[in-house]
Design a protein around this nucleic acid. Structure first.
Length: 300
DNA sequence: GGCGGGAAGAGAAAGCCTTG
DNA sequence: CAAGGCTTTCTCTTCCCGCC
């Protein structure tokens, strides 16, 4: 007999019959009426060419052929339950897994160290591969599976097929070297514009503060234009330049070098940093674990 | 999208079998 | 022989699928 000719539901019927040894009770267990259960049993008998369960004075009793089938049927049903119906669990303590996370170089300074510190204690086999992909390409990378998660400011990913979760509210702050000769804690707009500025413009990313100044028709003297936030710290500590950066990165800088955080004279509307993922991995246990970790570590 | 055919299941009823 | 449980048959409903 060809497997395609068998309705595999009959295995469920067989198992229920073996458990209850009664057509009525087996039917109740499967949500079938007694006649429907009887019909299912008749179908099973026809397919296997054996009466399987026969009526005796002590209820329905299995035939030798039925007894022969008990273990194989249980194995098959258990395999279906465990390997097909149950979501595979993700155990961070034992998992050997690498996650690719899209985040700008700010993210590598702000997010990655905390994730790694957590993993070192609780998920020793989990590694993080950080990639800086610009906003338009991030969606493609998430959809193709090239990346698992994007963390940061990705307004292009607010579209069908993608999920997002807000992590924290961010704003801007100015940074200068600790012994800057002119800039005090609350510079006026004139004082701010009188200084020379260092600006970070990572390729392919939205520059919120730049756009804000343009919308206000404000021009400043830019002395250094950088592609990476990481280079900014050295430049600030060795010059009189002033830079306006997201507050989270400024706090990381303050822990690394003698700099001061200063309120900017103009503050654009606050923005939210989020994590984004593709619907393809929405139910994936490993991805769910990573998202929960990111939320627990960074949600304000 | 509407229609028709087939499959499956429910419910009712009648018949059969076994036990006490 | 009555009671309980299984089987069979019939009718009706629902759902799915293919066709136009």
């Amino acid at each position: 007999m060809n497997i395609a000719e068998i309705d595999l539901n009959v295995l469920v019927v067989f198992d229920a019959m073996h458990q209850h040894l009664s057509v009525t009770r087996a039917g109740q267990a499967l949500g079938l009426s007694q006649p429907a259960m009887s019909a299912a049993l008749a179908k099973l008998r026809a397919q296997l060419g054996d009466p399987l369960f026969v009526r005796t004075g002590h209820g329905m009793r299995p035939t030798p052929r039925a007894l022969q089938l008990v273990d194989p049927v249980k194995r098959i049903l258990e395999t279906v339950r465990a390997d097909i119906l149950l979501q595979p669990a993700f155990d961070p303590a034992t998992a050997q897994r690498s996650f690719t996370v899209i985040t700008p170089d700010i993210g590598e300074l702000v997010f990655v160290p905390k994730i790694l510190a957590y993993n070192q204690r609780h998920a020793p086999g989990v590694t993080i591969h950080s990639v800086a992909i610009s906003s338009p390409g991030a969606g493609e990378a998430l959809a193709s599976g090239e990346a698992d998660l994007a963390i940061g400011y990705f307004p292009d990913l607010a579209k069908p097929g993608f999920y997002q979760q807000r992590l924290f509210r961010n704003s801007f702050v100015c940074v200068v070297r600790a012994d800057h000769p002119r800039i005090q804690d609350h510079p006026t707009l004139d004082q701010f514009l009188a200084e020379s500025h260092a600006v970070v413009r990572p390729a392919g990313r939205t520059h919120l503060y730049e756009r804000f100044l343009e919308s206000q028709n404000i021009r400043r003297s830019v002395r250094a234009e950088l592609a990476h936030f990481a280079s900014l710290l050295t430049i600030i500590t060795t010059s009189d330049l002033i830079a306006t950066v997201p507050r989270d990165i400024a706090h990381v800088f303050a822990g690394l070098a003698p700099i001061r955080l200063v309120d900017p004279p103009l503050q654009p509307p606050a923005f939210h940093l989020k994590q984004h993922w593709h619907e393809r991995v929405h139910a994936d246990a490993a991805n769910v674990w990573l998202r929960k970790l990111v939320r627990d570590l960074f949600h304000d």
